[in-house]
Design a protein around this nucleic acid. Structure first.
Lengths: 227, 227
DNA sequence: TTAAGTTTTCATTAAGTCTTTATGAACATC
DNA sequence: GATGTTCATAAAGACTTAATGAAAACTTAA
């Protein structure tokens, strides 16, 4: 991603399909990583941190839906695009697939053209929307460059601090419960102590100088619209 | 839950059962969190705030019934669905389970189909209308931002004050009995003195300036439609 | 492996919230 | 009018929760 090239991970147990998709993606200028089963997909995903993960539903070992769920449970993949590949033209399965946290699906047999165009539009959408610079009362946060700017000055936040600020600022004015913060920033399966959030909030306040983050006692924190 | 996905926590000390249930839930599009004993269940519940909690009765350490009681004692879980999983087809236990505050139970061996359908029907029943802005004669209450607005001005109420006002304003004109207020705002297992509600009402009146809350002597309080 | 930086935990302090108590007023009942 | 019930109010103390400083545990990069 640093060089602007999008990385795609494809997981399918049929080597033919893997080859066809890989060939087409590379032709379009994507960086491609492949996996032949669910566990390999998870391992490669963690290693490569792709922008998009294409998962076959039917795979030996862990199936695509399970892989999706496992990845989504980890904070680092909560925003990664996931597309299902399904041999079943079963509508119900497709819809369920989407609800497990995937962003799109495509039915086999796969048309390379449709596939490429779906991949393209998914990635375009996210580049535009998710990694967008958010700016609220003079404070700008740029998820792509990973910097925070305030009155012309740059601030370097650590990863967790950045993610936390990004979450709060994504809906200015709205209170995020401590639990929400935990599950969005830390993930559902990590258990951290009571004071962890506070400490990160303090670091953010400290580093930025201005205090746009309001504490709502017994409830959570919010980023102020005006401050 | 912002994305509309329902979150289910399953607690069982038998990994096989955990796996089967998890697999089936995931397949249906639920987000699943698991725990292998009572204490873990409580910790994960607090963190993830699931929509439904499935508790095995027989677990090492705290058993399901105990976990249920502990959770129900906390206001944040007073509306959470709880389902027991029991190996005993003992009717007495099942009934006792229900009376301790569970919403349903299912006997082992569990049929995935029945399980899924019970989960579905329980969750369908509950979809609640929280977090919406309510506005009554110029006074707006925003649970998301956790503020009250009146004639362009913001008022910051403390947690209990806010919850109390929110309850009253949720059905303007209707009288809430003191008991109702206690169980809705304080929860069923908290015992507080006679004057607690009054004092909170006073604080709300004081902070807002306008008095839209009417006392109905010997009965309770209501929020006036016009004031 | 060291070193720097990040993340988490712990202990303490500070701030606020919640509950209780005391007192008085309003109102109904006898 | 006396008595009893119920609520309003003010003030105090108990209790909860968050801020803070410092250190330990962990990661990452050099």
């Amino acid at each position: 991603m640093d060089n602007g090239l999008k990385k795609v991970l494809i997981a399918d147990d049929e080597p033919d399909i893997l080859e066809i998709l890989k060939y087409n993606l590379i032709k379009e200028g994507y960086v491609v990583v492949t996996a032949e089963n669910g566990d390999e997909a998870i391992a490669k995903a963690k290693q490569a941190l792709p922008d998009l993960i294409v998962l076959d539903i039917m795979m030996p070992g862990k199936n695509g839906v399970e892989v999706c769920q496992i990845l989504r449970a980890q904070p680092q993949f909560k925003d990664t695009l996931i597309m299902f590949l399904t041999a079943l033209s079963d509508e119900a399965t497709q819809i369920k697939g989407l609800t497990t946290g995937a962003d799109d699906y495509i039915s086999k047999p796969v048309s390379p053209n449709i596939f490429i165009s779906k991949v393209g539009s998914l990635l375009r959408r996210v580049t535009k929307e998710h990694n967008k610079v958010i700016e609220v009362n003079g404070l700008a946060i740029d998820p792509e460059k990973f910097i925070v700017q305030y009155s012309g000055q740059d601030f370097a936040l650590a990863k967790k601090e950045f993610e936390l600020l990004h979450l709060l600022i994504s809906k200015p004015g709205r209170v995020f419960l401590r639990n929400e913060i935990l599950s969005q920033v830390w993930g559902n399966d990590v258990i951290v102590g009571d004071r962890t959030i506070d400490v990160h909030i303090r670091k953010i306040r400290q580093k930025l100088g201005v205090d746009c983050i309001t504490t709502v006692k017994g409830v959570g924190y919010k980023f102020e619209l005006a401050c």
